[in-house]
Design a protein around this nucleic acid. Structure first.
Length: 191
DNA sequence: ACCGGGATGTTCT
DNA sequence: GAACATCCCGGTG
């Protein structure tokens, strides 16, 4: 399998997000099928880190599409996003949950508190922890295949993905910009 | 099952 | 000083 090409990512984050469902995140021995995502925009989106313009933290959101935006939150967790849209046009898709398919031993070693395999990548910070993603991968290129990348194994996105409001926000919480694979047990939550 | 609270430190007001 | 794109643990039912 090969990485998805740069042009795949050059879409508005709200268009790209549902297309990432059922794609496979690859990093080292670890692989997991993406089952839940959220879209974050620019100055039109009060819930986005880019809402008030570029800062040191969100710089990767302004990079060209097909890079990783990794941020630190709640004093202990890392979360990983796929940067969307053309360079200078901020937008990203938060990877919220995935179904592990390979490298489960490495994931378990990094996530000792996960009691079930289905919990290894169930949540954005858990997913990042399972893959060992932290600030060192902020800005990483998803196309050059030197680090994390995304694969299409032939499974299409769901024809009718589940949609809901985004989780964990106060500002910008009303937009229906979360998508998931309906019924998948690896989602961070049912709805 | 659901709920409440604590952890922990960067970012922004 | 408050908020934060979260998670874990211990309570109760």
């Amino acid at each position: 399998m090969r990485p998805l090409p740069r042009r795949f990512y050059r879409l508005d984050s709200r268009e790209l997000a549902p297309l990432l469902l059922n794609k496979v995140l690859v990093l080292g021995p670890c692989r997991a099928r993406i089952v839940e995502v959220e879209a974050y925009g620019g100055t039109d989106d009060a819930g986005s880190h880019a809402f008030r313009g570029r800062t040191a933290r969100n710089a990767a959101m302004f990079a060209d599409a097909g890079h990783l935006y990794v941020y630190f939150t709640y004093g202990m967790h890392w979360c990983a996003n796929v940067v969307a849209g053309p360079a200078g046009d901020p937008g990203a898709v938060l990877l919220r949950a995935a179904a592990p398919v390979a490298g489960l031993d490495a994931m378990r070693a990094r996530r000792p508190t996960a009691r079930l395999d289905r919990d290894l990548c169930r949540g954005p910070a858990r997913l990042s922890a399972a893959f060992g993603i932290d600030g060192r991968l902020d800005g990483a290129d998803l196309v050059d295949r030197r680090g994390p990348w995304l694969a299409d194994d032939g499974t299409p996105p769901p024809s009718e993905p589940g949609v809901s409001r985004r989780i964990g926000l106060t500002r910008g919480a009303d937009h229906p910009w979360r998508w998931f694979v309906p019924g998948d047990p690896h989602r961070s939550r049912p709805g």
